[in-house]
Deep mutational scan, measured.
Amino acid sequence: ATNIVGKVKWYNSTKNAGFIEQDNGGKDVFVHKSAVDAAGLHSLEEGQDVIFDLEEKQGKAYAVNLRIK
């Protein structure tokens, strides 16, 4: 899926990971530091509006192509 709108639920820069809550009510999506880095960002803030694509690896959904809304 592409161009999904959501809000950062939480992001821990020590653990280099967090979750994004989908505005469409879907399951929360894992976001890794690699996606944050690829977006040219240093970190994510709780409640921040984002747009992202979903990629599945080994049955788990990940946020990729992250951008700030």
Rank of each mutant, 00 (worst) to 15 (best):
D28A: 09
I51R: 04
F19I: 12
E46L: 12
A1N: 12
V64N: 03
L41R: 05
V8Q: 00
S13M: 11
N12K: 08
N3V: 04
A1F: 12
I4N: 06
I4C: 12
S34M: 10
R67K: 09
L54Y: 06
V50L: 11
F19L: 11
V8I: 10
K60F: 12
A17Y: 15
N12Y: 07
K60H: 10
A39K: 02
G40H: 08
A38Q: 09
G26K: 10
F30W: 07
Q58S: 12
V5C: 14
E21A: 15
D37G: 07
T2Y: 14
G47Y: 04
S34Q: 09
L44P: 01
D53L: 02
E55N: 08
G26R: 09
L41K: 03
G59C: 07
L44M: 05
A17C: 15
G40S: 06
K60V: 10
L44W: 02
K57H: 11
H42K: 13
G40V: 03
R67A: 04
T14S: 13
E21P: 01
V5G: 11
V31K: 00
S43W: 12
K15Q: 10
W10S: 05
H32F: 08
D23K: 15
K69Y: 13
A39Q: 03
A39D: 01
V29T: 04
A39W: 02
K9E: 00
K33Q: 11
I20P: 00
L54D: 00
V8S: 00
E46S: 15
S43I: 11
A63F: 01
A1D: 09
K69M: 13
L41Y: 09
K57T: 10
A38S: 08
T14H: 13
A1L: 12
D37N: 13
K57F: 13
K7Y: 05
A39I: 07
G26P: 05
K7R: 13
K57M: 10
K60L: 11
K15G: 07
Q58W: 14
N65Y: 03
K33D: 02
E45F: 15
K15M: 14
K7V: 08
Q48R: 06
Q58D: 14
N24S: 10
S43H: 12
G18W: 09
L54G: 00
G25V: 05
G6H: 01
K9T: 03
E45A: 12
E55S: 09
S34W: 11
K60N: 07
E45L: 13
S34E: 08
K15P: 02
A17K: 09
L66D: 01
V5L: 13
I4L: 15
G18E: 00
G59L: 04
K7P: 01
H32A: 08
A39V: 05
S13G: 10
N65Q: 04
K33W: 10
G25A: 06
Q22C: 14
G6Q: 01
Y62C: 08
F52G: 00
S34V: 08
E46Q: 15
G40Y: 05
G26D: 09
L66Q: 00
V36N: 02
F52W: 01
I20E: 01
L66A: 01
H32W: 06
V31W: 02
E56S: 11
D28K: 09
A61E: 11
A61F: 15
K9Y: 04
I68S: 06
D23C: 15
K9N: 02
E21Y: 11
A39Y: 02
A35H: 05
A38V: 07
K60Q: 09
K15Y: 14
G40Q: 07
L66V: 08
V50C: 05
L44N: 00
K60P: 02
H32T: 09
L44D: 01
A35W: 04
S43P: 09
S34C: 11
E46W: 12
F30R: 05
D49Y: 15
V5F: 13
K69D: 11
I68E: 05
D28R: 09
A61T: 14
A17H: 15
T2D: 06
L41S: 03
E21R: 15
G18F: 06
D23E: 14
K15E: 08
R67H: 06
V5D: 08
T2C: 13
S13I: 12
D53A: 03
V29Y: 06
N3P: 05
G18Q: 01
Q22D: 05
I68R: 06
Y11N: 02
E56Q: 11
K60Y: 11
N3E: 07
A1C: 13
A38K: 11
Q48L: 10
K7W: 08
G6D: 00
V36T: 03
L44H: 01
S13C: 13
E45P: 08
K57Y: 13
N24I: 08
E56Y: 15
T14I: 12
V64K: 07
D28E: 07
V5R: 14
V29C: 04
L41Q: 04
E45S: 12
G6C: 03
E45D: 10
H42V: 13
L41D: 01
K69W: 12
A17R: 11
S13A: 13
